[in-house]
Nucleic acid binder design. Structure first.
Lengths: 117, 117
DNA sequence: ATCAATACCTTGCAAAGCAAGGCATAGGCC
DNA sequence: GGCCTATGCCTTGCTTTGCAAGGTATTGAT
């Protein structure tokens, strides 16, 4: 069943679309963070690996949409860090996403329960 | 906040990626169904509108990947219907998706709870 | 000076959702 | 027969995202 594993892998990539944006905003709701910090935090707390090639374009989009703001700060013995924080609009969007996600999740849970009842 | 509504709308489109495939497979796990039946059933039971331009390419992909099989049957006073059913491989894939989704969902729920604690 | 670690960014490709439009079948009606 | 409507399936073109691969800049240690 190696073929199916491949299919599931591709499916998981699709499921991550949108979800990663959601998770990053959730992480930033707690506190301002910079790129690497977000990657390690999300990996630790949600077991979600967000590669750099995904994270940075995502953060650029969020900035362009004004859901997050950013500022540079000298790094702790390393390259300078770009800290991201939620804007008020970002908080509004996050609330809407949580509502939407919760609704979706209930619907899916209901269907899982129904399928195996 | 009309702009944010637009952003959320686009976000929801992204979140549906992969999720619709999952929901269709769940629906087919209960019983064999044809296209329109899937659309109305999923709309009713999960409040998810799956437009035709999404559904039929999706079903074609599932067929090509051999997760579902299909057969034509004369319609009940109308055009012939194409009935889809899960294959054994489809059932295997569905089990894997449920496991993956459940895991993801716990992670996200945890982050939502953490963000607003 | 060189090396490694930290940290950010860009490019090119694959994949999905969707609006818009098209095609075919069947039955009812004149 | 000819026309209309409803049912039902499919295709095209566009947008958006995730990601691997590779690149750049800063800092401190050897």
């Amino acid at each position: 069943m190696d073929r199916i594993e491949g299919l599931i892998g591709k499916w998981e990539v699709q499921v991550r679309k949108g979800l990663l944006e959601f998770v990053i905003l959730l992480a930033l709701h707690e506190r301002e963070q910079y790129g690497f910090e977000l990657m390690s935090g999300v990996a630790r707390r949600a077991s979600l690996d967000v590669p750099e090639g995904t994270l940075y374009p995502l953060l650029l989009r969020l900035s362009k949409d004004a859901l997050v703001s950013s500022r540079f700060e000298p790094g702790d013995g390393g390259a300078p860090r770009k800290y991201y924080a939620l804007t008020p609009e970002g908080r509004t969007a996050l609330r809407a996403m949580i509502a939407s996600w919760t609704r979706l999740n209930h619907a899916v849970s209901h269907m899982i329960a129904g399928a195996y009842r």
